[in-house]
């Protein structure tokens, strides 16, 4: 059964058919959410919110784009909203850790081995700075890189989701990669 056929049935009142959509797209949406929040529990909650939001907005879906494209847009917007909210929370956590004298930095330096990246990966906290580099990108660059790296989407599809041209996606990806390269290299000097 195609997505559009399913949508018609759901709009006619067959609510249970929406489960098929969830099972069909949950992995894809979960992966996108993971790219933004880097945490399984948060990604699960976010994926759930995305599908509920999609169900509520289904009468507004014009079928002008693919259902998956529309779903990706909801996922990206929900993820960015979640990040904006958690950024405010993190600010207060940062103040708390500053006042409490966090020694995370020291543990990162002492535990790492410059010639063995695998050793760095052993502990979850050691890959945190890589995620920080990704999270520090501007929202549009971050969206483009998540859709490209996590979802392996072609630039044409990313352009549709972000509602920009393919050329703009290409430029965003180039800038994002350059920024990441610089941030990772700077981080390397500091952490390794």
């Amino acid at each position: 059964m195609t997505d559009n056929e399913l949508i018609k049935l759901i709009l006619q009142g067959e609510r249970d058919k929406f489960r098929i959509f969830v099972e069909r797209y949950q992995q894809m949406i979960f992966r996108t959410c993971m790219g933004f929040v880097h945490n399984r529990e948060d990604a699960d909650d976010l994926t759930q919110d995305v599908f509920i939001q999609a169900y509520q907005s289904l009468p507004d879906f014009k079928m002008e784009s693919a259902f998956s494209t529309w779903l990706y847009r909801i996922a990206v917007n929900a993820s960015l909203n979640k990040i904006r909210k958690s950024r405010k929370t993190n600010f207060f956590q940062l103040i708390g850790s500053f006042l409490g004298g966090s020694n995370q930095e020291a543990s990162l330096v002492s535990a790492s081995d410059p010639d063995n990246p695998e050793a760095i990966l052993i502990k979850e906290e050691h890959s945190q700075w890589l995620r920080d580099a990704l999270d520090s990108l501007p929202e549009n660059q971050r969206t483009a890189i998540v859709l490209s790296k996590y979802d392996d989407l072609p630039q044409r599809e990313i352009a549709r989701i972000m509602n920009i041209t393919e050329g703009a996606v290409e430029a965003l990806l180039q800038r994002a990669k350059k920024n990441l390269r610089e941030k990772l290299s700077a981080g390397k000097e500091k952490k390794l």
Partner: peptide, 8 residues
Amino acid sequence: IQLLADRV
């Protein structure tokens, strides 16, 4: 570093 990022 980039390979590590890919791995993460």
